[in-house]
Amino acid sequence: MGDGTAACPDGLVGPDPERACTVREVLDRVGGKWSIGILVAASQGPVRFTELERGVQGISRRMLTLTLRNLERDGLLRRRVYPTVPPKVEYTATPIALELYESLVALTDWAERHRGAVAAARTAYDRRHGGVTNTTDPT
């Protein structure tokens, strides 16, 4: 880029794009639509596939399978298969997932404390700008 910075494939710019891209990848994975619910459940103790399927509202069986596989690949979940008929499979949070869980609890607490302020700010913004805005447009 000429100024000592470079961009990673998803548009992040900085002096160390490889590091920025890796951090973005990790945040995207753990902040994914289904990952948080799965990690919270697994942080409470071993959890079975069917328990997750019932407990994570709106997730399809295929998406649950893919998300579990990705979280296991990233070292956030440990999968244990018991040699029974039918096979019993449990997922347990790893130490790094338990550390992440602490951060998720802090984030949840923050959101709970400030949800009223955020709602009030949205209402004030919408009033100033003539109604509801398009929240997907960053401009």
Results as ranks from 00 to 15, higher is better:
27 L>Q: 08
32 G>T: 07
40 V>A: 09
73 R>W: 12
87 P>R: 09
29 R>D: 05
86 P>S: 03
67 T>I: 12
139 T>C: 04
10 D>K: 13
99 E>A: 14
118 V>P: 01
133 T>R: 06
3 D>Q: 07
75 G>N: 08
116 G>N: 09
12 L>W: 00
101 Y>D: 09
60 S>N: 04
67 T>D: 02
73 R>G: 15
77 L>N: 15
50 T>E: 14
81 V>Q: 07
34 W>E: 07
98 L>F: 10
62 R>Y: 04
70 N>M: 04
51 E>A: 09
71 L>W: 04
23 V>F: 02
72 E>Q: 14
58 G>S: 12
123 T>A: 02
48 R>T: 10
24 R>C: 01
18 E>D: 06
106 A>Q: 08
47 V>T: 11
73 R>T: 15
26 V>R: 12
80 R>Y: 01
3 D>Y: 11
123 T>N: 00
58 G>C: 07
31 G>C: 03
133 T>A: 04
127 R>F: 05
97 A>K: 15
76 L>S: 08
38 I>K: 00
106 A>H: 05
135 T>C: 01
89 V>S: 12
97 A>I: 10
134 N>A: 05
132 V>L: 05
54 R>W: 11
57 Q>W: 05
67 T>M: 13
36 I>H: 09
109 D>G: 08
107 L>M: 10
101 Y>L: 02
92 T>Q: 04
97 A>L: 13
132 V>W: 01
59 I>R: 10
88 K>L: 15
36 I>Y: 13
102 E>V: 15
105 V>E: 15
7 A>S: 08
32 G>N: 11
107 L>C: 05
70 N>I: 00
114 H>S: 10
81 V>F: 02
60 S>L: 09
86 P>E: 09
126 D>I: 00
73 R>M: 11
130 G>Y: 02
79 R>V: 02
18 E>M: 04
103 S>I: 05
82 Y>H: 07
76 L>N: 04
6 A>Y: 03
72 E>W: 01
42 A>R: 08
8 C>L: 04
100 L>M: 10
94 T>R: 10
96 I>H: 14
8 C>F: 05
11 G>D: 03
72 E>H: 12
123 T>C: 00
5 T>Y: 02
106 A>V: 06
68 L>E: 03
133 T>I: 01
113 R>F: 02
62 R>D: 06
83 P>A: 11
112 E>Q: 15
36 I>D: 06
